[in-house]
Simulated scan of single mutants.
Amino acid sequence: MATQRRDQLLIIDPQNDFCDIPGAALPVAGANADMARLATLVAGHGDRFAGITVTLDSHHTYDIAHASYWRDAAGNKPSPFTAITSADVASGAYRPADSAQAEAVAQYLGRSGLFLWPDHCIVGSWGHGVHDVLAAALSGWEAARLANVDYLFKGLNPRTEHFSAFEADVPVDADPDTQFNPARVRSLAAADRVLVAGEALSHCVASSVRSLLRHLGREFAQRMVLLGDAMSPVPGFEAQGQAFIDEFVGAGGKIATTQNLFA
């Protein structure tokens, strides 16, 4: 008898705040349907998954990519979707609300640009929770498999952005949780296939996959499958999402859907 392939399912940030449903802080068009399709896959083919990893974007209200962290020249909070550069800070157009962070902010912006988002995925809030239909499917998988979904929190350090599930955009030396940790990806690295879904394609999915390829080797893409009907780009960032898909396929990665994955 042939040994069943060891498939690991990696679900990136399947949270309420990213779904196009009432009350969401940062809705991604199509995400609600993405999560419903993914839930059907988990419920119908859960026995095919050796393990499931779910990442959770997890922020405080006071966060470098939220308005509360910043003030404009008049002392007001900037609006979401504002871009802030090192030149803006140098000119006084924007400054950190806590003046003690001025030097750290200057260093950060010297390494990475910054884009302010609406407050989202605040720890303990409804928006931080997993989409309810998918959450029910994951709970059912745990009960049927007598195993636990591996939940990974990312983004808790307010002084750095954390698009990738596995490392911050600018790691903080004093905070190991912002740095790549091989132990966190051991089950993924050992899998025959890693099936990737979640939100948003253009940002956290892309950054997470790129982290895996950077640390596990570009050839790891050949063991990865993107579930194209279970992820969508942030509106306005469709080109970035497509550029990532082209890059992934160019590295040997595969694209499938929840419908044809096990057909």
Results as ranks from 00 to 15, higher is better:
residue 164 S to A: 08
residue 178 T to P: 02
residue 231 M to D: 10
residue 27 P to A: 01
residue 133 V to K: 10
residue 98 D to T: 01
residue 218 R to Q: 14
residue 249 V to L: 03
residue 262 F to R: 11
residue 95 R to G: 05
residue 197 A to L: 09
residue 233 P to G: 05
residue 142 E to P: 08
residue 165 A to G: 12
residue 108 Y to I: 05
residue 71 R to K: 11
residue 149 V to P: 14
residue 4 Q to Y: 05
residue 223 R to Q: 14
residue 164 S to C: 06
residue 35 M to K: 01
residue 159 R to F: 07
residue 30 G to F: 13
residue 198 G to L: 08
residue 8 Q to R: 13
residue 31 A to R: 12
residue 133 V to E: 15
residue 43 A to V: 03
residue 24 A to K: 00
residue 22 P to E: 05
residue 6 R to E: 12
residue 89 V to P: 03
residue 10 L to I: 08
residue 62 Y to L: 04
residue 87 A to E: 10
residue 192 D to E: 13
residue 261 L to P: 11
residue 108 Y to L: 14
residue 152 L to V: 15
residue 142 E to R: 13
residue 5 R to K: 14
residue 222 Q to M: 08
residue 193 R to T: 14
residue 220 F to T: 07
residue 49 F to T: 04
residue 254 K to V: 07
residue 146 L to H: 15
residue 106 A to C: 02
residue 87 A to V: 05
residue 150 D to H: 14
residue 86 S to G: 03
residue 102 A to S: 10
residue 252 G to N: 11
residue 245 I to V: 13
residue 34 D to I: 08
residue 207 S to V: 10
residue 44 G to R: 03
residue 247 E to G: 01
residue 193 R to N: 15
residue 217 G to L: 05
residue 64 I to Q: 03
residue 155 G to L: 00
residue 260 N to K: 07
residue 134 L to R: 01
residue 63 D to F: 03
residue 243 A to E: 06
residue 56 L to S: 10
residue 54 V to M: 03
residue 248 F to K: 00
residue 259 Q to W: 04
residue 19 C to P: 08
residue 35 M to I: 01
residue 42 V to L: 10
residue 104 A to S: 07
residue 258 T to V: 11
residue 142 E to C: 11
residue 152 L to K: 09
residue 147 A to C: 11
residue 239 A to D: 09
residue 39 A to M: 06
residue 170 V to W: 04
residue 133 V to Q: 14
residue 107 Q to R: 14
residue 176 P to G: 00
residue 213 L to A: 01
residue 190 A to V: 11
residue 205 V to S: 05
residue 73 A to K: 14
residue 118 P to A: 03
residue 10 L to K: 03
residue 202 S to R: 01
residue 134 L to W: 05
residue 22 P to G: 06
residue 198 G to K: 04
residue 187 S to A: 14
residue 213 L to S: 01
residue 92 G to P: 08
residue 73 A to S: 15
residue 10 L to Q: 07
residue 84 I to F: 00
residue 109 L to K: 02
residue 46 G to H: 13
residue 52 I to A: 07
residue 129 G to K: 13
residue 239 A to G: 07
residue 109 L to Y: 04
residue 56 L to I: 09
residue 118 P to K: 01
residue 98 D to F: 01
residue 139 S to W: 10
residue 40 T to N: 04
residue 24 A to R: 07
residue 50 A to P: 12
residue 247 E to S: 02
residue 133 V to D: 12
residue 185 V to F: 04
residue 203 H to C: 15
residue 85 T to E: 01
